Computed example of a mutant assay.
Amino acid sequence: MDNQSYDVVIVGGAIYGSSLAWWLTQMTGFDGKVLVVERDPTYEFASTSHTNSCIRQQFSNATNIRISQFGAEFIKNFRAFMGGDPEVPHLVLQSYGYLYLADTPEFAATLKESQQIQASLGAHTRHMTREDIAAAYPFYMLDDIIAANHNLVDEGYFDGGTMFDWFKRMAKRNGVTYIHDEVVGMTLNAAKANVDSVTLKSGATISCGTVVNCSGPRANDTAQMAGIDLPVRPRKRYTFIFDAAHPLNRDLPLTIDPSGVHMRSEGKYYLAGCPPDDDPDVAPDDFEFDHSIWLEKVWPAIATRVPAFEQVKVINQWVGHYAFNSLDQNAILGRHTRVENFVMLNGFSGHGLQQSPAMGRGIAELIAYGAYRSLDLSPFGYERIETGQKFVERAII
């Protein structure tokens, strides 16, 4: 591939690299050559492969709410967005909702305020008293709970793996080139204002009009090649699939417990997850599993909240990585302030899969047309990283 030239070089081919690649093929008038460079085409350790594939409307920031509303529209109309090809499967959004439980007056007030913002944008979030929760879901222990928020419309689980697979398939079908290689260096122009080319591990040099960082938890490693610092690092997140000796008689919402543990139905089983109490940055290849987390944190929390879960058996478990933005746990998007052709799709901190339809579309618009058209994503811009001005979102899991 040496000395080839592409209009857009995308570093990383998982959910964001493939979402962007596909969306670029949907931009009217854009006919640029697009290259996706993926270091591991099995995606075994990609965050995309370890996702729990959930989507929620329950954010406190209006922009995040609108992003997820488009995400729900995209999931429910997936085949139509993919051109109506009968080969494309229908995606089902299983809307059992997120249930945020509040055990303090302060958090209850925050939930109430967030519910009002969500409702003003058309979300169906309901603010619930303890009595409301008990009536809807009598299996919870609620002695310490004051209130909750819940939404049964366009909020729950979907098949994110299939969505990713079809982003990738359709991008290739529409002319995007994918290669198994790794970007190991970037050459900037004399003014340090543009990336002229990327160097691959294979030794090839690729000239580029735009380079896009879709490196997930490795985002800062990629940015450093262009002399840019991103506050994005890998953080471990644990997931457990368990069977219950006494299954519940209805769906378990994606319950956000005050302990920091979340749980939900997973077919005939259940899923629970959490961060470790000590939550340091880790190496991007560190997937060592801490087996004490189940016994010391997860099982006590779920068995306390749902007494029926006193008798459960773990049948699968894994650890994945958040691409954790330590400034404000929200995405970093768009062009760098100095290196003008370096574009970022980074730092999603656990929101990545559900936000990928809207964010991929937005960056495709930015590259093709020079501006966001469908939804203004400028609040996620890199400028706030330089100034330390946080994107305020109170509903972080």
Results as ranks from 00 to 15, higher is better:
residue 262 H to T: 05
residue 192 K to L: 09
residue 165 D to Y: 06
residue 250 R to S: 09
residue 207 S to N: 14
residue 217 P to R: 10
residue 300 P to T: 14
residue 241 I to R: 13
residue 195 V to S: 08
residue 281 D to R: 01
residue 158 F to D: 02
residue 180 H to K: 10
residue 175 G to N: 02
residue 160 G to W: 07
residue 219 A to R: 10
residue 283 A to G: 13
residue 289 F to P: 04
residue 174 N to M: 03
residue 209 G to I: 05
residue 288 E to K: 04
residue 163 M to W: 00
residue 214 C to R: 14
residue 205 T to E: 08
residue 274 C to F: 02
residue 199 T to A: 10
residue 165 D to I: 06
residue 192 K to W: 03
residue 299 W to E: 12
residue 214 C to M: 08
residue 216 G to D: 03
residue 202 S to E: 12
residue 183 V to N: 11
residue 181 D to V: 03
residue 195 V to N: 05
residue 269 Y to S: 07
residue 295 L to K: 15
residue 284 P to R: 01
residue 240 F to E: 10
residue 248 L to H: 06
residue 269 Y to D: 08
residue 197 S to F: 08
residue 284 P to W: 04
residue 239 T to K: 01
residue 298 V to W: 12
residue 240 F to N: 09
residue 185 G to T: 07
residue 247 P to G: 10
residue 155 E to L: 00
residue 213 N to L: 02
residue 189 N to M: 07
residue 168 K to A: 12
residue 266 E to I: 01
residue 255 T to A: 11
residue 179 I to F: 04
residue 259 S to I: 00
residue 209 G to A: 08
residue 199 T to G: 09
residue 237 R to S: 06
residue 256 I to Q: 10
residue 173 R to T: 06
residue 215 S to W: 00
residue 186 M to A: 15
residue 181 D to L: 07
residue 193 A to S: 15
residue 199 T to N: 10
residue 182 E to M: 02
residue 234 P to T: 13
residue 221 D to K: 08
residue 174 N to Y: 03
residue 172 K to C: 14
residue 190 A to C: 09
residue 294 W to M: 11
residue 207 S to F: 14
residue 170 M to L: 13
residue 208 C to P: 02
residue 186 M to V: 07
residue 283 A to F: 00
residue 183 V to T: 09
residue 256 I to Y: 13
residue 171 A to L: 03
residue 224 Q to K: 15
residue 291 H to E: 15
residue 243 D to C: 06
residue 229 D to S: 15
residue 284 P to N: 14
residue 233 R to T: 14
residue 282 V to T: 14
residue 213 N to M: 04
